[in-house]
Design a protein around this nucleic acid. Sequence first.
DNA 1: CATAAGAATGACCTTAAGTCATGAAAGGAT
DNA 2: ATCCTTTCATGACTTAAGGTCATTCTTATG
Lengths: 253, 253
Amino acid sequence: MPGIASNRVAPPIYERQAPARPRSDAKRGRIIEVATRYFAEQGYHAARVGDIAATLGIAKGSIFQHFGSKDGLFFEVYKQAVRSFSKYLDAPIEVRQSGFFEVLRYWLVRTEHMLHEDWIPYRISLLGNYGTDLVLRREINRFLMAEDPYGTVDFVRFGLQRREVRADMDVEMIVSILDWTMERFQDALLTAALDPGLFRRQSELAEKKEARIQQFLDMLQRAIGAPGESAARRVERRRRDRRRPASKAAALS
Amino acid sequence: MPGIASNRVAPPIYERQAPARPRSDAKRGRIIEVATRYFAEQGYHAARVGDIAATLGIAKGSIFQHFGSKDGLFFEVYKQAVRSFSKYLDAPIEVRQSGFFEVLRYWLVRTEHMLHEDWIPYRISLLGNYGTDLVLRREINRFLMAEDPYGTVDFVRFGLQRREVRADMDVEMIVSILDWTMERFQDALLTAALDPGLFRRQSELAEKKEARIQQFLDMLQRAIGAPGESAARRVERRRRDRRRPASKAAALS
DNA sequence: CATAAGAATGACCTTAAGTCATGAAAGGAT
DNA sequence: ATCCTTTCATGACTTAAGGTCATTCTTATG
């Protein structure tokens, strides 16, 4: 299966100035754009390279000249989709100031809003995670490791600095746990809309989303949050606030 | 994509005695056996139905007559592989008596032993999870939901009865968390051997496995374990025992 | 304007999944 | 034992989609 990573190899260092191929790059962009739609709408296997070419009014051979293979094309599509997502620390400053777990909440809540604005990149990401081939999947994981597109590592460091994340675990372990559970939880939220029946036991996730998010955050808090004081209490306070948002003065029992 | 679930529909209730098709079933079994090897060794796409038929010395058409499609064949292979795994509560009685989290430890430790005995079903399971197609993946998830082949639901109930699992979360949520994280953690352990580079940040998981397992269990314990007393202390005690296994009398500081 | 490098083409190839008409074998019922 | 029906097996055939490549076209540049 050639072409996944074989085209666009790292350019030799002596190559000066970057080759600058405006025509080619523009076309690559257009191909990726149309291919993204097709993959998202039809799935990896059902999407036909021929259809993509026909839609663009170009020859099928051109696509292979640019991307080497269907896998190679999808990989580019995937990378672009994933790069279009925000990093954890891109949350607004006031959210960041409320702490690690509030940032998580922010993104979980926003996920479905963003989904309704533009579901296409989410679908692509889903395909990359579950819908292609182990060979491609390995390539994708190399990419995720190299780029850390959600900035999980930085985010965990941020949590460590604020002493909201426990320091007695390996950072790698925390990052993995966070990646795994966030990915799956988001998948569950998403696929309720995009792909009903794709993930187990998500049916009820659809309703009571806020409550689920809170439960999930509490769970994460216990799993990787710093023990004792500040963080736990902060989230707990926030939780009560959400239940009775108007009772600013009445509380303080 | 016909045939995934279309053959072998649920038999009508009025059908008496079960049809009993010994010849057919034996052949199905042989096909599944050979197909399992091919899928495991070559991956879903690289495995050729023609090769499977040739190895069996039968016509390719026969396979399609039995299973409808390559997807249908894989689905049967997958189901058989997953059914061959143990359920959580199949752990030995003395392990069960040591509690919920000790059962988890038992299976995590055994995973790699069993892997060396027979890696084939693990590879098949991995393919089902990540290496085929979203359409098939949905079918697989329906199956996993319907059969609960690892007995996660029963196992969580077991933990709840023993008051080792927290009662303030939805059972469904706990089951999901457990499924997700155990699956991924096992994948990480496995793929270090089966498929290097498939999952992120597993490189170090390979070394210090025991320590990782302990960290992982501690994390799970905090995430879904009952708060406070018994369970937490039990695992903590066990942890110390593992560090200094011979100092039965010397401890008790 | 000549030339070379890169880009585009589309006819062609390959391969593998999937189909189906035909015939053989097995399992009764008379 | 002989029909007859149902199930199974066969392998030649079809379809279709990914992939190749020699040729032609376009653009940039001296």
